[in-house]
């Protein structure tokens, strides 16, 4: 008997159920298919008009910085300004995301832009989020050549671009967006839900930023 059979049959014995109970199978299949949404708190039900403000409030509450620009064309300048303001070198690494690729990087000649995953030597990573959930200021970043996961964690500063229209009210709404882009039940290798920069409270319960991941998280909302 395989480990799987042994464990599964022991569970069935404890539950007092048989393998072929059609009602149970139907219940499970239906739940996996319909993915019902549990009751949500009020903060997960913001209207489109409230959404950006709530997102910003929540992200800032967890020590991220948030700025908003009108169009993708303004992103390179905004990044250069941000890095200057933080006294950081104007050198960033980004993935192959076409939305990032289409931005006018040459308009800011001082900014050095590299593409590809990080080996740990990049001071600043740039990603484009799939979307965000306003309820807790949480970004959803998916892995792939477009947005290598290493960029989210190795650089000390992480800059994330998200389209204003992609900010949803709740986690559940963002999963629906993911299902639309990737197909139901299909996931990219990694989905990172990011709520603020890295931190640890392991030394005397004092919260310090930048434990292993980024010390700074800067969010640029476009549109």
């Amino acid at each position: 008997m395989s480990g799987r059979d042994a464990v599964i049959s022991r569970i069935r014995r404890s539950l007092g159920v048989a393998e072929d109970e059609a009602t149970r199978r139907l219940t499970v299949a239906r739940r996996l298919e319909t993915a019902p949404v549990a009751p949500q708190p009020a903060q997960a039900q913001s209207s489109p008009a409230e959404r950006f403000d709530l997102f910003r409030e929540k992200a800032e509450a967890v020590s991220a910085t948030v700025t908003r620009v009108a169009s993708p064309g303004e992103v390179p300048t905004e990044i250069a300004d941000y890095l200057r303001g933080q006294n950081l070198a104007p050198r960033i690494r980004r993935g192959a995301d076409p939305r990032l690729g289409a931005m006018p990087w040459k308009s800011v000649p001082t900014l050095e832009v590299w593409a590809g995953p990080s080996d740990g030597n990049d001071p600043v990573g740039l990603s484009h989020a799939l979307g965000a959930a306003a309820e807790t200021g949480t970004l959803f970043v998916t892995s792939g050549a477009d947005n290598p996961t290493t960029l989210n964690f190795l650089p000390e500063t992480h800059i994330v671009v998200v389209a204003a229209e992609d900010i949803e009210a709740s986690y559940e709404a963002t999963w629906q967006r993911l299902r639309t882009t990737h197909g139901k039940g299909t996931m990219p290798r990694t989905v990172n839900l990011i709520s603020g920069p890295s931190r640890s409270g392991d030394i005397e319960q004092t919260i310090l930023l930048g434990a292993h991941g980024p010390k700074r998280l800067h969010i640029i909302v476009v549109g």
Partner: peptide
């Protein structure tokens, strides 16, 4: 309200993943 990183992993890296 939410931990900083909630990370979902599905399978190994895909072809084309850097």
């Amino acid at each position: 309200e939410m931990s900083v990183y909630t990370t979902l992993s599905t399978g190994a890296k895909r072809s084309g993943d850097p």
